[in-house]
Simulated assay, not measured.
Amino acid sequence: MRNTRTLTRRAVLAAVSVTAALALTACGNDDGHHSTSSSAAASADATAAAHNAQDVSFAQGMIPHHRQALEMAKLAADRASSAQVKDLASRVEKAQDPEIRTMSGWLTSWGEEPMPGMDHSGGSAMPGMMGGSDMGELEKASGTDFDTMFLTMMIEHHQGAVAMATTEKTKGEYGPALSMADDIVTAQTTEITDMNKLLGKS
């Protein structure tokens, strides 16, 4: 009898152990398997997880928005007559080119693609984006006409970027994206003021 009881007890204990192990495994899976991953992998998972749909939308929208600003800025090198306009265009390039690379890196780490089907004309739905005809006119202009057109268009472009960045600051979650959005608002608001002064506006 004792042997039978002992065997029964062992069987019960074994079953309980297996059940407990399964429960722990299930909990580990629910947890996103952080318990079994290395600290580096856990850190990468945390980075990828600490963002929301707004962060993705911000990066996907701001990349083509910045790219158009760079196209406009590059035109100033041999078309603008004002040294101040050329200087401003250079500031735009230095600020926005690295930001494009940074945002592209975020999208890659999140497993997201750049905005599909984005081209010069397709981006006009975003705030401040120029249509193909606007860009065509800017490409044909030179001298003081270019300066006026460039400043007028870039002010509108910057205002759109500030609006997009403000939305990110309000609804985003990813720390580096919130920080970049804050930088964009600060820098581009200052540049809008500078451009209005160059146009003779207060």
Rank of each mutant, 00 (worst) to 15 (best):
G123R: 05
G111H: 06
D119F: 00
T6M: 14
A76G: 04
R67A: 15
T36R: 13
S179I: 07
T47Q: 15
E113A: 15
V12E: 04
G122N: 05
K94M: 08
H66S: 00
E137F: 00
N196C: 14
T152R: 07
V162M: 03
A77W: 03
A69C: 02
D119Y: 00
K197N: 13
P64W: 07
K140S: 11
T167I: 14
L22T: 14
K197Q: 13
D30L: 12
H120I: 11
I184F: 02
D147R: 01
I155E: 00
M129I: 01
S38R: 00
D147I: 00
G132K: 05
L24Q: 05
G123N: 04
D30V: 07
Q54M: 13
A187Y: 11
V12K: 08
I192C: 00
T47V: 15
D194K: 08
A42T: 13
H158E: 01
D55W: 11
A80M: 07
T25Q: 04
Q84N: 10
D55N: 07
P114Y: 06
M1C: 04
M126W: 01
K140M: 06
T102I: 09
H51G: 12
I184H: 02
K140Q: 12
R9T: 14
T4R: 15
N29C: 06
R91M: 02
V85C: 01
S57R: 07
S82W: 03
D45W: 09
A23D: 08
S43R: 09
M118V: 08
K201I: 05
A15H: 07
G132A: 10
I100R: 04
K86Q: 13
H157L: 11
S39W: 10
S57V: 08
N3Q: 15
P116A: 01
Q68G: 05
G32I: 00
T152S: 08
A181E: 10
N29W: 10
A46Y: 12
S202A: 07
L88A: 14
S104E: 06
Q159G: 11
S43L: 08
D183Q: 15
S124Q: 13
M62R: 00
R5Q: 12
T186M: 08
I100D: 00
E191D: 10
H158G: 03
P116N: 01
R2I: 13
